[in-house]
Design a protein around this nucleic acid. Structure first.
Lengths: 149, 149
DNA sequence: ATATTTTATATTGTGTACAATATAATTGTT
DNA sequence: AACAATTATATTGTACACAATATAAAATAT
């Protein structure tokens, strides 16, 4: 019975894993035109919504480790898209903000997710429906964290 | 209008990306007991279904680059789970096969996906339904590869 | 006020991902 | 048969991912 779960084509997890990588590969050439990778684009999505945030804010929204975000911010800074400054009132904090170049990228980036949406072939309703299902699943999995028996 | 797509919490792609990473993190401690990472576990899933396969067979089923699979197989070989041998009739090919240790791992691995299934809180029907939706989406995205306008 | 703990970020080390390149064997061509 | 094109795998280089550790500043405790 358990054996059926060991078949690759039965694994829901593998589907999520494959799909995620396939999406990243689809984004790659579109984002390369802007000089970004997909994770870097996610950081900019955060900043385009709220500028001047702590590093902490980014790691939490993206659910990423500092070991991932720290060097990524360094690369974004080297590329001239963001700026990093120690906070004046709390020297532990680093405030990340957009440069002019980083802000300017937003208009060019707008067509990227629209293009990806088109590739899904979804209607707006189907898109929303899938979003709801995934959000629900994520919530469920968080609740069932400890499922040992 | 396009601007709404730039909001992080509207991005279906980000949900897939987050969920995939969350699943991998959930697998990690369970697979660590077996001495495996998630991608390494995927390779073994392939071999448990069909032993003695070309490297090519693995890269295709997992949709992974040789640059990913080659070093991974080397690590699996060092860990004693698989064996690699040049094919006799075509010296270009490398045949990957399970060692006794690699085969033996299968029984211990059976409970891993069952545990993950439990965490989803899905019924068998819901599981199948989600699988169907994702398979359909992957097919759709492959068809709409070129969606430029 | 000083020692302890907590918090915010960075670094180290291992393992993917993947594009681009390299290498060697096989097949196809002339 | 000699050369070109193709095929199978490996290597190189860059960028995540993440656990574990390090570091320094702030908050708390004594």
């Amino acid at each position: 019975m358990n054996d059926a779960f060991l078949r690759l084509d039965n694994q829901l997890c593998f589907l999520f894993y494959s799909l995620s990588r396939a999406i990243t590969r689809m984004y790659a050439p579109l984002l390369a035109e802007l000089g970004l990778t997909y994770p870097q684009y996610l950081v900019l999505l955060v900043l385009w919504e709220t500028d001047n945030v702590e590093v902490n804010h980014i790691t939490e929204l993206l659910a990423m480790d500092t070991g991932t975000v720290s060097p990524m911010l360094k690369r974004l800074e080297n590329a001239g898209f963001v700026k990093r400054e120690r906070s004046a009132d709390d020297e532990r904090k680093v405030i990340v903000s957009l440069t002019g170049k980083g802000s300017a990228l937003k208009s060019g980036a707008a067509k990227v997710p629209a293009e990806l949406f088109c590739k899904t072939g979804f209607t707006m309703d189907e898109y929303g429906d899938m979003k709801k299902r995934l959000t629900h699943l994520i919530k469920k999995m968080r609740e069932n964290e400890k499922c040992a028996d």
